[in-house]
């Protein structure tokens, strides 16, 4: 997740928005983590209920999960875990999304 900070700094001006939604509702730990890592993209919080955004809308029951969304609001890529090499894959996919203006 903190790996998205350099990505956002690099492509924010080109039209990339990065949004992170913390899933456990442990605000104290989340705040500490955000300050420690110096994260500056959009950081949202939710209540840890069964009917929250992550579970009811996106079917997310484990973390981390990453969705890549094009300029028309469609989900074009989905990374249901973090595995080595994902950073490079995500950057490549982000570039594709940015280049596609339609």
């Amino acid at each position: 997740m903190p790996r998205l900070e350099p990505l956002w700094r690099k492509y924010g001006r080109e039209g990339l928005v990065v949004i992170a939604l913390e899933t456990t509702g442990d605000d104290d730990l989340a705040r500490r983590f955000i300050a420690e890592k110096g994260l500056s993209f959009v950081l949202l919080r939710q209540e840890p209920t069964r009917h929250n955004v992550s579970q009811s809308l996106y079917g997310v029951t484990f973390c981390p999960q990453t969705f890549l969304i094009d300029r028309n609001g469609r989900i074009l890529h989905y990374h249901p875990s973090y595995s080595p090499g994902d950073d490079a894959r995500i950057e490549k996919q982000v570039l594709e999304l940015l280049l596609n203006q339609s």
Binding site: G15, I19, L21, L29, P64, T66
Partner: peptide, 13 residues
């Protein structure tokens, strides 16, 4: 996200 490319990540600390 309107008109932008977006990364949406679900995370825990």
């Amino acid at each position: 996200v309107r008109g932008k490319a977006a990364v949406l990540v679900f995370w825990f600390p």
